[in-house]
């Protein structure tokens, strides 16, 4: 299990991401970036899709990145990473770069750049089997451009393009299950994590960079502006998303599924919804039925995941006593 001291030791060696960027106060994205980059021992190359992270960290002529970093466009982060990785392999083959000093290629994309606009390039890169890790920081709307709905926005959330009011109820559609879409590419590693569980995320990154071929991790980030919660509550909101089963933490290693975290106490979804201004309208009298629908959907999905977990559990090393998740990579 990775410790926070290991992450600190890695950052003391090389500070890969630094302050002075213009992300909002209480933003969840830097937690994703620093946990991921500090968990990787090899040198990294970062490719970034357009989004909050890209816009706020690289206001020309400044940069928050202390690693080789590339941004091309909104829709092609995974394609750009494919090119970088292929060029690297070609240079190694010709002897122009050392073969025994591995480099890790990491892509950061928001939910807009991953669920919607960059989905085709992500799908292509996963299918071609490039050696890279794609990390999606999911804050559930286009926050950078002013909180427009994306396909990651959950049912009922109010955004500027799905506003709540007399006619509209908030977003009327369900969110897309991107982790399942990535899994359908039959890549060796797919995972889902959240900023509140840094050990879980760090663990997943360590496994993801070890597998052969591409890996995908979907991380729930938070957005105090779009979710309308207090900046100080960023981690608490993510924690509740996990504890209410809205955002289950799991991984799929070589096609085998397991839950990596089972909340000790399952919290009603209402607690999580109440913390956020974007769900305020759900508590009006006329919307009373919506809460039950949302709760039922979450329980149904949880049952389905638990069943998958039971079916595949035998393929993983067994849990030790008092352990809520395992760290062994080897499958039985």
């Amino acid at each position: 299990m990775p410790t926070i001291k290991q992450l600190a030791a890695n950052e003391a060696k090389e500070k890969r991401f630094r302050g002075g960027h213009s992300l909002c106060s209480g933003c969840g994205i830097p937690i994703v970036v620093r946990t991921v980059l500090n968990s990787i021992e090899t040198p990294v190359v970062v490719v970034n899709a357009t989004g909050c992270l890209e816009v706020a960290t690289t206001r020309f002529p400044n940069t928050a990145w202390n690693v080789p970093w590339l941004h091309v466009a909104f829709e092609n982060a995974a394609a750009a990473a494919s090119g970088v990785e292929s060029a690297y392999r070609a240079l190694v083959k010709r002897g122009k770069l050392p073969a025994d000093e591995p480099v890790t290629f990491v892509v950061f994309g928001g939910d807009g750049g991953t669920y919607d606009i960059g989905l085709q390039s992500l799908s292509g890169a996963l299918e071609r089997g490039h050696q890279f890790l794609y990390v999606c920081y999911d804050n559930e709307a286009y926050m950078n451009t002013g909180i427009q709905r994306s396909s990651a926005t959950p049912f009922g959330a109010s955004t500027t393009t799905s506003p709540e009011g007399k006619i509209s109820f908030g977003k009327a559609q369900q969110r897309k299950d991107l982790t399942a879409i990535a899994e359908a590419h039959h890549v060796n590693y797919v995972g889902q994590s959240a900023i509140s569980h840094w050990h879980d995320l760090s663990d997943k990154v360590k496994r993801a960079v070890e597998v052969d071929g591409p890996a995908f991790i979907n991380v729930l980030s938070t957005c105090q502006l779009g979710w309308r919660h207090e900046p100080r509550e960023a981690v608490k909101v993510a924690q509740l998303a996990v504890d209410t089963l809205f955002w289950p933490l799991y991984e799929v290693v070589k096609g085998r599924f397991r839950l990596t975290h089972i909340p000790e106490e399952i919290v009603p979804i209402e607690t999580w919804l109440r913390m956020q201004g974007r769900f305020k309208h759900l508590f009006k009298e006329e919307n009373a039925g919506a809460l039950e629908v949302i709760q039922q959907q979450i329980f149904d999905e949880w049952e389905r995941l638990k069943e998958r977990d039971r079916n595949d559990r035998a393929h993983f090393a067994p849990l030790q006593k008092d352990q809520t998740f395992t760290t062994e990579f080897e499958m039985v």
Partner: peptide, 27 residues
């Protein structure tokens, strides 16, 4: 780890203090 602005300083692997030049005060 959770500071969005890397304004919490660590000295090696020990907590040190705050860098007020970058802290946005999110609490």
């Amino acid at each position: 780890l959770d500071c969005p602005d890397t304004a919490v300083l660590a000295e090696g692997t020990d907590f040190f203090g705050f860098e007020y030049d970058y802290c946005k005060g999110c609490a």
